[in-house]
């Protein structure tokens, strides 16, 4: 039972980059900042590829963003995705709006499954997957994880962490929730958002990178989707959190204890 899977691939600031706020508070300093595929989306791409390798089907990656998001789409194609869609949009990406755009893509592509990172590491909103599921009235499983560790044999064999039912129409998902691990069975089509422990994404191979250059990448303008593009959440001002004042060095454990006990009252 082949699966058609739509996966999101957002272009975000490299988590290793130092993020600084512009003096006017209207944005962040982008000079010298590297960009990459959102790490949670990378996990979603990996999971989609594993499902395809097991069951057959097609993996379509979609990005909403500036022209340069092609780089992140090509990265996903190099990992093994089949084709890509870029919705060109230069402006704030609010989950309410993003999900409305994705709804249009889903209606056109009719995937069996949408896999998304649980959040993008720029806005950290953790909403788009859930908004999309509700707009589509589809079931959802957020924070998809698995019981097996990332050092396990199953992981070495690249077994999918989300498991397709024998009927090919349901998906079993283990999710990290408060105080434990929950298992949900979703009737497809469904939306699944990925957490850190679901898998270890593969590195693109050199042949993969070469092949990716020739894979189809369709572009369309956000305005062509016919959704209201006005952000629902408006960022008024950005600031940097109060800087931590330079600390003191202590000579030994005895002094450290004293400071923590008497000065900081933390112990």
């Amino acid at each position: 039972m082949a699966l058609k899977i739509l996966v999101t691939a957002k272009r975000v600031e490299d988590p290793e980059s130092k993020i600084r706020v512009r003096p006017d508070g209207a944005g962040i300093v982008t000079e010298g900042v590297n960009y990459k595929l959102n790490p949670f989306d990378e996990i979603a791409v990996e999971e989609a590829l594993r499902l395809k390798e097991r069951h057959g089907g097609e993996v379509v990656v979609v990005s909403i963003g500036v022209d340069k998001s092609q780089t992140e789409l090509r990265a996903a194609l190099a990992m093994g995705a089949d084709r890509a869609i870029l919705v060109r949009h230069d402006g704030p990406l609010d989950p309410a709006v993003v999900s409305a755009m994705l709804q249009k893509i889903v209606e056109a592509e009719k995937p069996d499954l949408v896999l998304m990172g649980k959040q993008s590491i720029d806005d950290d909103q953790n909403q788009a997957g859930q908004y999309l599921a509700e707009r589509l009235r589809w079931p959802q499983a957020t924070f998809a994880s698995k019981e097996a560790s990332l050092e396990s044999e199953a992981e070495q064999k690249k077994d999918p962490g989300v498991v397709l039912g024998a009927d090919g129409r349901s998906l079993t998902v283990v999710r990290e929730v408060d105080g434990g691990v929950e298992t949900l069975v979703l009737a497809l089509p469904a939306v699944v958002t990925t957490d850190l422990r679901l898998n270890k994404p593969r590195f693109a191979s050199l042949p993969g990178i070469m092949k990716a250059k020739k894979k189809p990448l369709q572009e369309l303008a956000a305005a062509a989707l016919g959704v209201d593009l006005a952000p629902k959440v408006v960022v008024k001002r950005l600031s940097e959190p109060p800087a931590r004042k330079g600390g003191v060095k202590v000579a030994d454990v005895e002094e450290l204890w004293k400071k923590l006990h008497e000065e900081a009252k933390a112990l």
């Binding site: 309410a96 959802q140 957020t142 629902k232």
Partner: peptide
């Protein structure tokens, strides 16, 4: 902003045509 809150509230927001702020 627990796993529960983050899971459910965006779906409520979608139903209410509302914008949402997390955490």
């Amino acid at each position: 902003a627990t796993a529960f809150g983050k899971d459910v509230l965006p779906r409520v927001a979608a139903r209410l045509e509302a914008g949402m702020a997390t955490e």
